[in-house]
Design a protein around this nucleic acid. Structure first.
Lengths: 158, 158
DNA sequence: GCTGAAATCCTTGGGAT
DNA sequence: ATCCCAAGGATTTCAGC
C-alpha cells in the first residue's frame, strides 16, 4: 500500500469505470502494472467492489428515514440483524452503542410505505420500539475521504 | 424505463465494471443497444456515477459515528450544510425532520480523532450541540434494493 | 514489480432495418 | 430502438529483466 496504490484507489472511488490504461496514464505506470496492482487490492479486500450509484428519486424511492431500533431485554443481536437483512427496504444497518441496538437506513417510495415498513420493523422478534428520523434531503452521501490525490505523474519514457 | 433498463441498473449496481458486452448477454441485447441505453440512463440522471468501494478498515478509517447536529435558533441551514461539506471526515449528510437539523456520518481513524472531529462540528456557526452514536459494527451498507433481477435472457438469434 | 508485445475482447461510431 | 460491422483501443497474459 504505497502512494501509487492510494492514488489508484482514489481514482477508482471517484470513477469506478476508469480503464487500466487511463489509470496507468494518471499514475505513471503501464496498464499491466496497474492491472496487477488493482487485482492485488481486490484480493486483499481493500477494494470490495464497484457499484453504479442510482438517484433514488428517479427509481421511485423518494422517502428515506433513519430508524433507531430499541431491543427488548431478551433480544439476540444476531437474530435481529438477520431479520433486518431480510427487509429489502433496509439499505444500511449499523450496530451501535447506546440504548438503541441498531440504526438502519430505510428507503421506500412513499410515507405510506414507510409506515408499513416501520410496522414490519416493530414486528421483528427482539424489537421493543423504533425511533424514526425522516430525511428531508440528502446533501451528500458516501463521499470519498481520500487525501492524497494530485495531478498526473508523467511517464519517465514516451 | 422498462424492465431491461431496470435489469441493466441492477446489474451495474452489483458490478459497476461490467462491460457492455457482458450486460448485453445478460439482458439479451447487443452491446451497442446496451451502450446507448446506459448513456441515456446517465444523461437522464438515473445513474449518477460509478464508484469503487473500499473497506474502511484497510484504509485506516476504523471508527464510524452517526452524529445529530442541533442547530442554534438563528442557524442558516445552507451555511451549516456548507460547513459540514468542508470536513472530509463527514462522509454523508442528511437534512432531517425533528429537532436535529442534520444527521451526518463521520468516519475517522481513532476515537481520538473522533473527539477532535466532534470539536470541529460543534465549532461550526449555527451548531448548538451534537449527539453522537458510535457505530460498533456495520452489518451492511448501501445495499441495492432492486426487485426485478432474474436469470439471463437468451438472445433470440445466434 | 515493472515493461513491452501479442492475441483476444470490448468500445463506439456509422449505416441499415 | 435495435442490429451489424469495423476500426481503434483496452484487457490480459507472459517472457524478460
Amino acid at each position: 500500500m504505497d502512494t501509487v496504490d492510494r492514488r489508484i484507489i482514489a481514482a477508482l472511488r471517484t470513477n469506478g469505470r476508469l480503464t487500466y490504461a487511463d489509470l496507468g496514464r494518471q499514475v505513471g505506470l503501464s496498464a499491466s502494472a496497474v492491472h496487477e496492482r488493482v487485482g492485488k487490492l481486490e484480493a486483499a479486500g481493500v477494494i470490495t467492489g464497484y457499484h453504479a450509484v442510482v438517484d433514488p428519486m428517479t427509481v421511485g424511492l423518494g422517502v428515506t428515514a433513519l430508524v433507531g431500533i430499541h431491543p427488548t431485554d431478551t433480544a439476540d443481536d444476531e437474530d435481529v440483524a438477520a431479520a433486518l437483512a431480510e427487509l429489502p427496504e433496509v439499505e444500511s444497518c449499523y450496530r451501535v452503542a447506546g440504548d438503541e441496538a441498531f440504526v438502519v437506513k430505510v428507503r421506500v417510495a412513499t410515507v405510506d410505505e414507510l409506515e408499513r415498513s416501520l410496522g414490519r420493523l416493530r414486528r421483528i422478534n427482539g424489537v421493543a420500539r423504533t425511533r424514526s428520523t425522516v430525511v428531508l434531503s440528502t446533501r451528500f452521501e458516501g463521499r470519498p475521504n481520500v487525501s492524497d490525490v494530485e495531478g498526473p505523474t508523467p511517464r519517465t519514457d514516451g
